[in-house]
């Protein structure tokens, strides 16, 4: 990571904004903080390859400017408990030991106590944050079978380190989040995911996982050519169609089958686990979970209930 070109941006415009979501798919109403744009981890499937034009990493480090935008957003919201994250255009932790951008945000959310900050990562480095962690920060890890980490997420931390770091966060009094995203279909993936779920349930306190997302691989069409060019066998194994939002995704029949398998495996480990889908259709929700989640607002309400159950009146 020493050869990274890092630019410090002048703070202007909306650095805190709504997750763009995607047409005709249910979004969880996430708020993104573009603290860093660009990622040093360079996973093979990463959609940032399609969205960001520059190899440089841009840092927005004017924290007062950012927190004023967060305040403005939480002040405007009257119905839902807002969840903010810095992992949309970058990895939340990969550069944090060097640039220490999260600490003031963690402290800010701990003082405000009216919203949650999620630090989403594939980089298992949280020791520098432990002294300032508080329950209003969710340490989250994207997880995948080690085979996928070895082949498609080469610069990231291995699975056991991510789970160890998540455990450390739980021990420090935080809830953690897990993201099965992207879930990749390849020969033998079912067995690998079963082992992954076994590892999670063995190493983590399942009651202190605040949420777990499931999101099968999806990408803008222009990345298909990129995957073909780089012979990404794992990424091209399933049957892709062009979704209503224009993104490539596995055909619905495959999605429902895989989600159902994972949903059942996870619920078997912890009945009360809060599982949601990232960018899925209403009928997929219904078919897999039996729940009717017809729009973004319904999903946000489910999040509200989950958070209230865990935090009581403390938020």
């Amino acid at each position: 990571m020493n050869s990274l070109r890092v630019e410090h941006a002048v703070s202007e415009g909306n650095i805190v904004r709504d997750c763009p979501g995607t047409k005709d798919h249910i979004c969880c109403g996430y708020k993104t903080i573009d603290l860093i744009e660009g990622c040093p981890l360079s996973c093979s499937y990463c959609i940032l390859k399609a969205y960001l034009n520059t190899p440089a990493i841009t840092i927005h480090d004017n924290i007062p400017y950012i927190t004023s935008q967060i305040d403005e957003m939480t002040g405007r919201e009257v119905r839902h408990i807002l969840r903010f994250g810095t992992g949309e255009l970058s990895d939340s932790l990969a550069l944090d030991r060097r640039y220490k951008l999260n600490r003031p945000l963690v402290e800010f959310f701990g003082e405000r106590k009216n919203a949650l900050l999620e630090l989403k990562s594939k980089w298992a480095s949280i020791d520098h944050l432990i002294p300032c962690l508080n329950p209003y920060t969710i340490i989250s890890f994207s997880v995948a079978p080690q085979r996928i980490i070895d082949e498609e997420e080469k610069r990231t931390s291995p699975l056991y380190k991510r789970l160890k770091a998540a455990k450390k966060a739980q021990d420090a009094g935080c809830f953690v989040g897990l993201h099965f995203d992207p879930i990749i279909i390849y020969p033998g993936f079912e067995k690998d995911y079963r082992y992954l779920i076994e590892d999670i349930s063995r190493l983590l306190d399942m009651d202190r996982i605040i949420w777990l997302s499931l999101g099968l691989l999806r990408f803008p069409p222009k990345l298909l050519g990129h995957y073909i060019e780089h012979n990404r066998r794992n990424l091209l194994y399933g049957e892709f169609i062009r979704g209503e939002d224009g993104k490539m995704r596995y055909i619905k029949q495959q999605r429902v089958k895989v989600y159902t398998m994972l949903y059942r495996m996870l619920k078997k480990k912890s009945k009360g686990l809060f599982i949601y889908f990232c960018m899925e259709r209403e009928d997929v929700w219904r078919k897999v979970t039996g729940m009717t989640v017809k729009d973004d607002d319904d999903l946000m309400t489910l999040f509200d209930e989950r958070i209230k159950n865990l935090y009581g009146g403390n938020i």
């Binding site: 005709d24 169609i241 209503e244 619905k252 009928d283």
Partner: peptide, 8 residues
Amino acid sequence: IDPFFEKE
């Protein structure tokens, strides 16, 4: 019908 059977 949607050509990819996506729309419900």
